[in-house]
Design a protein around this nucleic acid. Structure first.
Lengths: 228, 228
DNA sequence: TAACTTCTGTTAGAAGTTCTAACACAAGTT
DNA sequence: AACTTGTGTTAGAACTTCTAACAGAAGTTA
């Protein structure tokens, strides 16, 4: 099955895209468990086994969805960050955070696909690490430039030689971000967990019965990073 | 099917407990999707349909697991909080946070059952709201007593008459916590999202490839609430 | 003790699921 | 025209949840 012919390649890609498009609809409607190879095939007008010519199995279809989602998210935040070059650093941080939230709320199921409960037995392919890093990298670059404006480092756990800082430094070095100051790494990590804390609960509907506006809480958390 | 006989009631409860015990094992091993009525029955030495005498359907079994988990979590944090009466307020806040984290890490699958990706089509029974509130309530009471030690309220979004504060006030009043100061409610909410932000990513294994100690980050986030 | 009700189990089966095997045929290449 | 590759088919294995119909034990009552 070594596809080389151009027209066939094109047709093949289109078929895969259509399958993934329907899979995303199922994901939105019924969650990850609702993605059914059989049902996708039926909606495409073919029989179930036909789709196994395009995806080795259901997990490989999910892999593609995960990859696409990471890619899409990175595009979104990179565009937001690139579109605010020259503006105040605080503004750019908000711009990243807003883009992140907008993406999550526009397609909650995709956000949960990336950050939600991991599927048992399912292991994301290795290349998703790099794809995920694109989003983190966009954020870190904004934080790095804003680091002059960030509150001074005067707490012990935040010190550049704290255990946490040292661990992060190692990670960053391995990922080619060795030039970043540990404080930036720490702020980035904390920022990410705080934003995710709000978003994941919002997207999962946990705030539903409480009846307040999560946007206000989200904004407060972004502010906390810039002023604490 | 109106069970009244004592011995039968007891036997019935034991059977349900055994089924739930096995379900928890499946949950731990294969996630929520891996909970199979049929497989549980098989392991109990009965046929599949027999279990439908005890649980109307699969969702009702899940309901029971969710209820048990909320209950168990509340027990854990209530015990921790009760065990530190008289100690410094900061210490008690840490005590709550540590108990929360310990529970989550001891049984990640149960944590994800409560706070992870919501199951499509599945709606938690109404009484879980009250059960969930037990945990929140324990935290709020500690925060309330610690409120004198908390940093002063000097930011606009945190003002007692901000939109967010007013919304939270209304929620608290409806839940019988009307006596709490809006600042306490705000702190509680922010605290919760921050702790969850770290925990959910840790439990989902998202920190895995980064190789740092999440406990340090968690502790930093707890500190942030007490000093920001 | 006998009759009756309730509860708990059984098997059979419908309607799904993923995925493999074997086969048919069209499209593109030589 | 013959050959290879790609794409579809049907059949079927091994699962799943869940219903229906039936068997028999356990507990209650006359």
């Amino acid at each position: 099955m070594r596809v080389v012919n151009d027209r066939r390649v094109k047709y093949r890609e289109e078929t895969k895209e259509e399958a993934k498009r329907i899979a995303l609809e199922q994901l939105a409607e019924q969650g990850v468990g609702g993605i059914s190879v059989n049902a996708i095939a039926k909606r495409m007008g073919v029989t179930g086994p036909a789709l196994y010519r395009y995806f080795k199995n259901r997990d490989e279809l999910l892999n593609d969805l995960v990859r696409d989602a990471w890619s899409d998210l990175a595009d979104q935040v990179e565009t937001a960050v690139a579109g605010t070059v020259g503006r105040p650093h605080r503004y750019r941080v908000h711009s990243f955070a807003d883009a992140f939230r907008a993406w999550a709320l526009a397609q909650p199921h995709r956000y949960l696909l990336l950050f939600g409960t991991p599927l048992p037995g399912y292991h994301a392919p290795h290349d998703t690490i790099a794809l995920a890093h694109r989003t983190m990298s966009a954020f870190l670059s904004v934080l790095d430039q804003a680091s002059a404006d960030l509150p001074p480092v005067d707490r012990s756990w935040q010190a550049a030689d704290s255990p946490l800082a040292r661990q992060l430094r190692e990670w960053a070095a391995a990922r080619g971000e060795g030039g970043l100051h540990p404080t930036v790494l720490l702020t980035g990590l904390r920022a990410f967990t705080r934003l995710h804390g709000v978003l994941s609960l919002e997207v999962a509907g946990q705030f539903g019965p409480m009846g307040f506006d999560p946007a206000l809480l989200y904004r407060a958390e972004v502010e906390s990073l810039l002023s604490d």
